[in-house]
Nucleic acid binder design. Structure first.
Length: 136
DNA sequence: CGCGTGACTTGTA
DNA sequence: TTACAAGCCACGC
């Protein structure tokens, strides 16, 4: 297994992998984050691809809510392990109360994780109708 | 080191 | 809406 060495690495070394895992662990239930967002929060802006790679290796880690990480289009990215994991991911998100539209997409405007929400109010342009209510 | 590949993203057509 | 290209980092050969 090629990724196993990678897993051993993220467990031992405290590099980008550990940071990414740290961020993913912080994603609250009932919210979703994009790969790029996780990368940025981990102090690795623009390295969304690395996030996906890390999640692949950490897929067996039950303590890691990998299912809350989706791509910037609000869709679940397919992987090499077949559609099984993708379906499971969607089911888990729906189980947390996150709805999917007809095209299988999640509204990041409504369900996207906002770790540092800007003063909930009208101080920010474009922050009108959304961010009004929070799930859970 | 170089190359190809990958759970990505953004911009452009 | 889909398809490509360029850019990012890490891994295996």
């Amino acid at each position: 297994m090629t990724r196993r060495d990678a897993v051993a690495r993220e467990e031992g070394a405290a590099g980008s992998w550990a940071r990414i895992r740290r961020v993913v662990r912080r994603i609250p239930r009932g919210r979703v984050a994009t790969y790029g967002q996780v990368a940025a929060l981990a102090g690795l802006p623009g390295q969304a691809r690395l996030v996906g790679y890390v999640l692949y290796a950490a897929a067996t880690d039950g303590a890691l809510p990998w299912h809350r990480v989706i791509n910037a289009q609000g869709r679940i990215s397919a992987r090499g392990e077949g559609p099984g994991a993708s379906v499971l991911q969607r089911l888990r998100l729906e189980q947390e109360g996150i709805p999917f539209d007809a095209r299988g997409r999640v509204s990041l405007e409504r369900w996207g994780w906002r770790p540092r929400p800007p003063r909930s109010g009208d101080a920010r342009p474009g922050a009108g109708a959304r961010a009004r209510f929070l799930p859970g």
